[in-house]
């Protein structure tokens, strides 16, 4: 239960981290908050030749607004999103979803970029990144590039990051003030991995119909899933209880996680429908609140 030996690198700039990643490539792992990586090292499921600790890179710890985008550095700790005024004002889905990540002791260390690069399909930040159409900023030896969240998650804990690249920031489009959001998760115990989770963001038209809707689900497949069939089923509809319940069923074909020790496939399909329905319902209620408050 002790980590194997590795070369420990703690660069203080992104450039140096990228140079190290370029040097060690696939034999190196980036250490961010360590809430998933340290267990893997302690159990020796991971045996990297080099560990590149990015915790000393202050450039990765910024939260900044650029016109209609909120950029959150990869090294920002998850708990910081919980009551950060800019995050609460501009992307209020995030503070709500972040509270479901593990326990407070994990969120005190865990980072935004760490969770996204780890790409556990049960995790909250990958799921919300997909619902919010976030853009991931990565840096490699030949410079920076951006990847849409939808294209970033490619398979079970597999992302579009190249071995010599480092995730540096996440860009979230600012949510309209009148948008409603909801995040719902079902887990056996407090802080456990979700058996199913869902995020929803809705904008209502002046006629009360759904003008736009984004829904994503966690823990139902190898990657977070954008629920386009659910979104289409509600496009232009009134957000009534019946309509939402009917549309939520469209998530079922996306549930590809099989039977395992946590749940059967059938139970996951049921849960997925329930969390999607609840997330949309919460988002609609919030959108009504907002338009009434206007």
């Amino acid at each position: 239960m002790k980590p194997p030996a590795f070369t420990y690198c703690d660069p203080d700039s992104v450039d140096e981290a990228v140079a190290l990643k370029n040097e060690y490539g696939i034999d190196s792992l980036v250490l961010a908050g360590g809430q998933s990586l340290l267990p893997m090292l302690n159990i020796r499921l991971a045996r990297p030749e080099a560990l590149i600790d990015i915790n000393r890179i202050s450039d990765l710890q910024k939260i900044e607004r650029w016109s209609d985008v909120l950029e959150i550095g990869a090294g920002v700790r998850q708990y910081q999103l919980e009551d950060h005024p800019l995050v609460q004002e501009l992307v209020p889905l995030l503070p709500q979803a972040v509270k479901f990540i593990g326990h407070i002791e994990n969120r005190h260390r865990g980072t935004v970029g760490g969770s996204i690069a780890h790409a556990d399909s049960a995790a909250e930040l990958p799921c919300t990144a997909v619902a919010l159409d976030a853009t991931l900023v990565v840096r490699g030896p030949s410079g920076s590039r951006t990847i849409a969240a939808r294209d970033f998650f490619q398979g079970w804990m597999t992302t579009a990051l190249e071995p010599e690249e480092v995730l540096v920031a996440v860009r979230y489009p600012v949510m309209p003030w009148t948008a409603g959001h909801g995040f719902v998760e079902v887990a056996r115990r407090e802080g456990d991995f979700a058996l199913a989770g869902a995020a929803a963001v809705v904008n209502l038209g002046e006629d009360g119909r759904i003008a736009s809707l984004a829904v994503s689900a966690a823990s139902i497949s190898d990657t977070p899933v954008r629920a386009t069939a659910v979104e289409q089923a509600l496009a232009g509809e009134l957000p009534t209880k019946e309509n939402i319940a009917r549309a939520a069923k469209e998530i079922v074909p996306s549930v590809t996680s099989g039977d395992d020790m946590h749940a059967t496939r059938a139970y996951r399909q049921h849960l997925a429908t329930v969390v999607v329905q609840r997330a949309i319902t919460a988002a609609v209620a919030r959108a009504h609140e907002r338009s009434n408050a206007q």
């Binding site: 980590p3 420990y8 340290l38 302690n42 407070i104 005190h108 260390r109």
Partner: peptide, 27 residues
């Protein structure tokens, strides 16, 4: 547990509770 499940190794790091089995001493 030494892998972040039980919380019995919790300490305060700069005043914040963290699991000390999930950090390296150098950090």
């Amino acid at each position: 547990c030494e892998h972040g499940v039980c919380g019995c190794c919790t300490i305060l790091l700069d005043g914040h509770s963290v699991r000390s089995c999930l950090m390296l001493a150098v950090q």
